[in-house]
Nucleic acid binder design. Structure first.
Lengths: 204, 204, 204, 204
DNA sequence: TATGAATGAGCATTCATTCAT
DNA sequence: TATGAATGAATGCTCATTCAT
């Protein structure tokens, strides 16, 4: 009988390593041999678990964002106040960026950039970047809708507003990554949230 | 020395062509031969004007954003009402994205992504992405400061607020590029602006 | 030691499977995993019975031609008329090609081609292609000699004539494989035989 | 101005080198770097003249057989006696095999084998092996027809007979290549021709 | 000055074979 | 004995850059 291996676990382990290397060197500059070396396995072994480099990238990408979505969903689940829910999302993102592992921001930006750069339609559709953002939008839109129903927020185009909210995050993250010193991320996000909520709340 | 003038003009002409090709194919997928063919010159000739492909990219990048900055500066120059000035910036960006040449959004996103992806510090510093965003921030910060002085806007951390304003643009642009059908850009930007201004205006 | 019998039987079974796969995909395109899968055994198990892929190929090759030789020998054994014996060989080949299993021609041609292509002298000598053709030549030469002795055939260089007879088969087979529609194999072989026998028979 | 090069001539030169290496090592074992080294050029340079290794192979294949066809056509052009024409073809082939460059037989066999082995339909159709043999058949068939019309040859299925004639060549060539010592090629071909002609000639 | 022919470093991927279990 | 997980040598091809003309 051959070595018994939990295929799924090993695949995940390689994926984790790949994500680490992606974060450190960027997706394009990462070579298969880099991942293999870092994972302390042979180059060929990777191909036992992934079809291609692209497959690794897409898997990492999907895993990364789905995990994030899950965590956010869980985080806001217990809370029912829409304002607090938006704060939780902001806080969660903030924590992920600066308190969580140092690579979070880098890999997210790289995925993002890689996604944008892909004119290759097959890859792009595999990445389902659209779908991921649509999911994020749905979460925020749901919160906004709930806020409107509760008479807390003004009537508005909730999908467009959700886009504004989410888009702002990515843009701010970029600037923070580019120049971590200049931007006090916590303060900026706090302003963002206040400004945003101020802008949509019904004034009493 | 009329040659010098021609040299400069030809360099600029190559740069324009390169930007067009970058927009169409993406920076990485663009080959030197593509630029040469499109510019109707020889492959080797490009190297008379640019040191390397990277040099072209950085030049294009710099030219692109500096031109945009200049145009925005000119556009808000005649106006003195801070709210109107912010509107002008929004309108200008909107126009650039959808009315201006179709490639604007693509090339901006690709530059952006390429910039983020460059772990190569030498290149990244050459691109001066930091500096470019700092300039944008300055413009917006100046408007905000003026608004505060005029008693229109609340007191705030104007640099952080400027980051919020600018960051939102990039993020929204991304989502629009990913899915132009779903996002009504004009409406979203209008909401962004209203929300933002609502958030910072002194309530009367 | 019943194991030994089983070993031999299993080896033969793998060989049969390998030949089937060789015929279907060609030797080079056939992967070890293909043979293992088709034989419903593990990849590693093959190496319990064969040293290498080359070993399988050579074994298959040898088995294939030796079997054919045996069958031909048996077929002509009962007959004593040289003309009839040549006809039997022709008929047997024809039957093998078109009536027997559909893969016969393909695998024979592939072996043939693979044999020619092997510049690797070690492999080539293992295949003993020379020896195999020498055996065929011997059979035909024996028939021709018998015919001469019986006063039916002219005196001739029987080895050279045997080569002509055998060589023609391979060549015609190639053309038939390349274009089965154009070539009416039965008619061509019949002409071949008539022509050949006409050419060597003593005219009365 | 760049180096001036006769592209067509250089392509042909590379092709000649490739054919030499193909003959020495076999098509599959020949690596791009082998051809480049032998041609004293860089690996990349080959790709300036050929799309791929396959392209080189097909080009070599086509060139090889077309050249041979042309030469045979020229050789029989001046002669009108069908028997003599068949002799000329035999002689030409014999000369090519043993007097001409030593590699002739090897490369022909390798092309032949490679052609047979290709289950890849695209490549196979590019090689037009069918077409090439059809051309050969046409030449021989024309001679046979002329012989029949002149009352020299019996009535027969000329296409089938042509196949017999041509096929025999390939088969005999194989055996000669496999064992040059045993087979006296000249004698065998002479026998082949006599036998064949004897078989189709009208007996007086 | 302009050119494009020439170059070779660099890389993803395949697959026969090994060997721990 | 049987297995299949692990391996890495081996190779075709791309493309930025150089340089002879």
């Amino acid at each position: 009988m051959p070595r018994v291996v939990n295929k799924e676990a090993k695949k995940m382990q390689i994926l984790q390593v790949a994500m680490k290397v992606f974060a450190r060197k960027g997706v394009v500059k990462t070579k298969m041999i880099d991942i293999a070396t870092e994972a302390a396995i042979g180059k060929g072994t990777i191909y036992e678990y992934f079809r291609s480099k692209e497959d690794i990238f897409i898997s990492a990408f999907t895993y990364f964002f789905e995990t994030m979505l899950d965590e956010i969903n869980q985080a806001i689940h217990a809370e029912h106040d829409p304002v607090r829910q938006l704060q939780i999302i902001t806080d969660y993102s903030l924590k992920s960026l600066i308190q969580g592992n140092e690579e979070f921001a880098d890999i997210m930006m790289d995925f993002w950039a890689e996604g944008v750069r892909h004119k290759n339609q097959v890859v792009l559709s595999s990445m389902n970047l659209k779908g991921i953002y649509a999911d994020y939008r749905k979460i925020v839109a749901k919160i906004l809708k709930s806020g409107i129903n509760q008479g807390i927020f003004k009537k508005m185009d909730i999908n467009a507003a959700a886009s504004v909210f989410i888009g702002t995050f990515d843009g701010i993250m970029l600037q923070w990554i580019l120049d971590r010193k200049i931007l006090n991320l916590q303060k900026v996000l706090s302003i963002l949230l206040d400004t945003f909520i101020n802008g949509i709340k019904i004034e009493k």
